[in-house]
Design a protein around this nucleic acid. Sequence first.
DNA 1: ATCGTTACCGCAATCGTGTGCATAAATTTT
DNA 2: AAAATTTATGCACACGATTGCGGTAACGAT
Lengths: 346, 346
Amino acid sequence: MKLEQATIKDIARELQVSSSTVSRALKDYPGISDETKRKVKEMAEKLNYRPNAIALSLRKSRSFTIGVIIPEVVHFFFSTVISGIEEVAFSRGYNVILTQTNEKLTREKSSIDTMLSNQIDGFLVSYSKETTEFSHFSKLLDQGYPIVFFDRVPEIQNAIHVIVDDYAGAYEATKHLIQQGFSRIVHLAGPSNLKISKERSRGYSDALRDHGIPFLPELLVECTQGTDEEAHKITTKLLQSLSPRPDAFFANNDLAAVGAMMACKAAGYAVPNEIGVVGFSNWQFCSIVDPSLSSVAQNGFRIGATATEILLDWIEKKINLEDIQTSVVLATELLVRKSSVRIQNT
Amino acid sequence: MKLEQATIKDIARELQVSSSTVSRALKDYPGISDETKRKVKEMAEKLNYRPNAIALSLRKSRSFTIGVIIPEVVHFFFSTVISGIEEVAFSRGYNVILTQTNEKLTREKSSIDTMLSNQIDGFLVSYSKETTEFSHFSKLLDQGYPIVFFDRVPEIQNAIHVIVDDYAGAYEATKHLIQQGFSRIVHLAGPSNLKISKERSRGYSDALRDHGIPFLPELLVECTQGTDEEAHKITTKLLQSLSPRPDAFFANNDLAAVGAMMACKAAGYAVPNEIGVVGFSNWQFCSIVDPSLSSVAQNGFRIGATATEILLDWIEKKINLEDIQTSVVLATELLVRKSSVRIQNT
DNA sequence: ATCGTTACCGCAATCGTGTGCATAAATTTT
DNA sequence: AAAATTTATGCACACGATTGCGGTAACGAT
């Protein structure tokens, strides 16, 4: 069935030379005559020779492959990160092997196992929501295994990670709402066990404080799921129960923001004139919802690309571990669209 | 730095037995005493032994890895497919190595090369828009290399592929619009060199014909980009130039549908009461735009899962090539939301 | 005492490639 | 012409795991 791939030995047999000569000729080693090199290369071409990367991996104990572990692929942010990873890995001659954990810890661990078996050169990880204990990572780090975390990063000593400035992003978003004249601003927060959620909440409350608006606990609501339905329900309830009613929503993610926006519209409020809304992540759909959704952009592509650059530098020992700053924080950018900008009444 | 992984030899040395004995003991071969097996397994545990998949691949010329080649990762449909692929591959003990071509032919070819070097067991491919000639695939197929195509499938003899029933989906969508009382239905078509676009256009025109509505060439407009901006422009122009104006839009993809919808709203028409809109693909945002967008769902997860099942069966020789139907067509489902259902006037 | 049987286990080759060392031939130096 | 050096190539082993074949000891049977 499957046609055998030509090997170095085949070339050697064909040309009546040793396989070591072939190996060296192909790599333009000194000490091989030009004549031989030419012949070898011709024959390699003719037999459609392709070096066996597996054999090479075995020999060098290097696979030129990096493992990516993420919660889920079908997610605008993560797929963007993957794209950045893939781009850099490809350009530097590495393969990417990918697994999604579906937010399961067991899956995370078994993925690590199979990847280790496959002698991958390093990991890029955003861990699952179930992961609360990080010994399976720290064990590897102690062995000197390169791991770069992104987005969701563990609180391990010296764990290298790439994140965005969630605090600043949330601060800017909140400040923007305040400057638009909103003052009873609800924050639909993410699960409080994730560091990113905490940072965003902190940015929210600091912005309030810095602008002389008191922080009210009843305006900070945790959305554990982060779906639009959940946000819709919560928002509807808040609009009824709070008095005076909230006049703006800053959500931990865009889906929740849309849910909140829908709920506001359903309750008869005009967005943005009566209620302002800002999301977080700048998902694709931000510009096509009505009104278009202001959001804090986190450049997933850059996160992936940066994390990969660091990982590969580490793998190739281009950098000393001591010289790496453990935390790379990328800037966020507030993209102001219609959902948060009050239309001037003339 | 990186701690050496324990090998079979390490266990052998520690226990003063040969490595063959260790290998056999670990696999519960007959002819090894229970005592030895116990000791070997204990030592393996103690040394944290992990089989070297690379060495195994070399020995067996099998890598238990499949290669996935897609145009781009950041795309709702494709990321869903990846998810399906990953799920099945994982459950059957295979790794997934991923590359995106960014719609470039050269990238497609070089990805194939590096994957071949890595001795992957088979390919899952959706080819790039630049690819018009398929010899780099057919060459591999001739060598008996397993390749399963999905979504975008080439017209090669005997190429196995998994697609959705674009024709039926488009037919149903058009029929639905007709049944809602729309009759001047515009089709915003995709690039005509892709088979999927052609199929969808065919479904559109056949549905018209079967319901006694004449097919008008001016109502079939090709959107080469498929973006919302492009659709917005085209729609705006059509609304002005055509008389009587179109009363419905069936788009080749959801983004274009949203663009059309926006344009209708901007021109002062009510969706769905004055103008109906239906998209194709059922992207995530369909349910959160306003009004929610009716769309033809193509189950990306199932496409990925099915394609992977077929590929792995093929690889494992569970099926004969002759027994595989070259074309697996999955059903589409029209999801009716608000954008296409006229609200009854009481 | 010899043979046959069984139970355990080791030797050595293999997968494809890379590389230190040895070797032979060709060339230059003395 | 002999010695020294350069040039070109091959041998053998390593990477880690698997496996056909053969070996050895113990035991029982004759």
